[in-house]
Design a protein around this nucleic acid. Structure first.
Lengths: 116, 116, 116, 116
DNA sequence: GTGGTCTAGACCACA
DNA sequence: GTGGTCTAGACCACC
């Protein structure tokens, strides 16, 4: 669960929805919103700080630290690509489980360029 | 990890790589091939039997039970769609983490058809 | 408390009492020995892994990973220096609190070379 | 942090830098000087009064109460001992962390005189 | 109010 | 039996 939270924040940063300096909701509020235990959120925050995604200021709150959101344009383009692909897959009658399996299998493939 | 194994088998069935009646490798062999603990494989087999994917015949082995792989043609089409999409995403410079995040975010979206 | 535990392990590695590959007591055993909560020990172990001091192998245990114990001879010499200094301080009638204060004050001093 | 402040005052008294009757800076000024929150300073003052180090006179300020700084000569000698020891340790290439660990380990040792 | 640590005890994945 | 995660609730330091 704490990994999911981290991924969501990372995603939001990539999309530009969260920017450097933005304040995250406090641990307790976040925990309440996501219906999880504050300690779990705290662990996610700690790991995000460790990863340099976020800065935790004692008594003040949690703030986005990231500079790395440089490819936002490509991310937006990627979003469109993904949207079209998923639409097409759903039109083929595939459910979310099948779609996920197709993607995971594609991503875990060893993709070697065919030498000529 | 046992969940990943289940997903792989489910995927292989969808692709037609595994068909009704095919025999799965024994627990020990599978465990050795995938470098995991036999207990973990055993748990996956148990869950797959519970899900009706597989029939465990005591002393004989594990056999594919499924009939549900009906959309194999569409699955194959989907595979091509996914392959093209992932290629495009990698060309945009996105790493696997970012691609996964885009897909998960797309799949978990509430997709409402705009009524007209 | 988890910081103290980390310092102790670090110290033991420096002294050569713990070497690369040595297995640490399990989380629960350590917690029992030190009369603390297993979660606290777990946090210390996690941080030590993060710091590269230790490798945690799921289901197997915690193992010393460090290569950095190169200055062991100097550490041993330092141990002697410290021992003599503390002896002298105690002979002066100073208690542990006063000794600690003297050291902390010395360590936190800005030590600039006097330019000539 | 408030504990550190207390230790510093105690140390200053031992060194003779602060004597009976001397007035401490006000809470706000102290807080500003040390870049900490006034509440934290206030707590330190309260604890110091509780420990008999200081007398808080309402509306007038905080004054050193202590008589206990009797061993000032020995403290000064100890200061020299510590200075030489730390110099030697730094020459051995040990960083502050390692030095601290050596001292703490020495101080927490059970020091039994060998009876003859 | 914020983050940070500690306790207590549960369940899971893995060997 | 190991480490890993989650829950629940306490107290502290700091703003």
């Amino acid at each position: 669960m704490y990994l999911q939270l981290i991924e969501q924040v990372r995603h939001a940063i990539e999309l530009g929805a969260l920017r450097r300096g933005d304040q995250l909701p406090g641990i307790r509020k976040m925990a309440e919103d996501l219906v999880m235990n504050p300690n779990t959120v705290a662990k996610a925050y700690r790991e995000m700080e460790h990863a340099g995604l976020v800065v935790l200021r004692h008594g003040a709150g949690a703030f986005i630290a990231g500079d790395q959101g440089g490819d936002q344009r490509n991310i937006q383009k990627g979003r469109a690509v993904v949207h079209r692909a998923v639409d097409a897959l759903r039109d083929l009658g595939l459910d979310d489980g099948a779609i996920r399996r197709l993607f995971e299998s594609e991503l875990s493939e060893i993709h070697e360029e065919v030498p000529r």
